[in-house]
């Protein structure tokens, strides 16, 4: 048995007559950053939401950190949920709590720390994602898009999870902010030893941070491997995605400016 922390086998998910994921299998190794790509409506977010248990599946099995959440008891499932963090596409911050309180929320719920330690760690987390104490006192409505994502990431990391799920972490950010966010994900992954499962559309993110890329099409993973394998793939959709006009431009730019 490999050290896969997420192991999806033969997964079928659908709504009514429409089957979104059809016999999908995917493994994520410990400590890697997996980028999941696919066309709009191909079921990337559906896969993510199914793995974290927000959507029901029709068939197949999902094991996260060695536990099958269907067979696990309530307490066991909760224990596994504490070991992952989720960054939702829109941030999903609690709108009536400040940024800092949002980060403190999971700690308050699970750890029973002293007020002082909770505040200190929450502040350290905010600083790790590049925010100051002044930002921490703001309400989500007062934060910019990039800051919202950062706070949401800090909240996802609040309990020092082993896996983080990122749903389009760089969508809606300007290229500079998106680049910073990519660097941040990479740094945090190295610092905290995270496994990152990232749904994204951002070619640049895929080039710079993803260790491995899985391509979702027709309800299955049609290609899987590092960026070089994607560039060599002959699957028509993969070819268009990674060797289309925008991808070409990006490849040229990355070649000119080696980081």
């Amino acid at each position: 048995m490999s050290d896969a922390v997420i192991c999806v086998r033969d997964l079928v998910v659908g709504f009514g007559a429409h089957t979104v994921l059809d016999g999908l299998s995917l493994e994520v190794e410990a400590g890697e950053i997996l980028g999941l790509v696919g066309g709009s409506g191909s079921g990337k977010s559906v896969l993510l939401r199914t793995i974290i248990g927000l959507l029901p599946k029709r068939r197949g099995s999902i094991e996260v950190l060695g536990t099958d959440l269907d067979r696990a008891g309530e307490a066991q499932a909760r224990a596994v949920e504490r070991r992952w963090g989720v960054l939702f596409q829109q941030g999903a911050l609690f709108s009536s709590l400040t940024a800092m309180e949002n980060v403190e929320f999971p700690m308050r719920e699970y750890l029973g720390l002293s007020d002082r330690l909770r505040r200190e760690v929450a502040r350290a987390k905010l600083e790790m994602v590049g925010l100051t104490a002044v930002d921490g006192a703001k309400l989500p409505a007062e934060l910019s898009g990039g800051m919202t994502k950062r706070v949401a990431l800090a909240r996802a990391l609040a309990l020092d999870p082993e896996i983080v799920f990122l749903d389009e972490p760089t969508s809606g950010l300007d290229p500079i902010a998106a680049g910073d966010f990519d660097a941040l994900i990479r740094t945090l992954q190295q610092t905290l030893g995270l496994t990152v499962f990232m749904v994204t559309h951002d070619l640049e993110s895929l080039h710079t941070v993803a260790d491995r890329i899985a391509v979702l099409a027709d309800g299955k993973v049609v290609a899987d491997g590092p960026i070089a394998a994607m560039l060599a793939s002959e699957h028509p959709w993969v070819k268009r995605y990674f060797r289309g006009r925008r991808a070409q431009l990006l490849a040229e730019r990355l070649a000119q400016a080696p980081s």
């Binding site: 200190e120 502040r123 350290a124 600083e127 790790m128 104490a133 610092t191």
Partner: peptide, 19 residues
Amino acid sequence: ERYRTLLGGIHTANREALP
């Protein structure tokens, strides 16, 4: 060795005084 970056990262945190 594996905790060096983490401790380095936390070393710079919470340096400013709170308003």
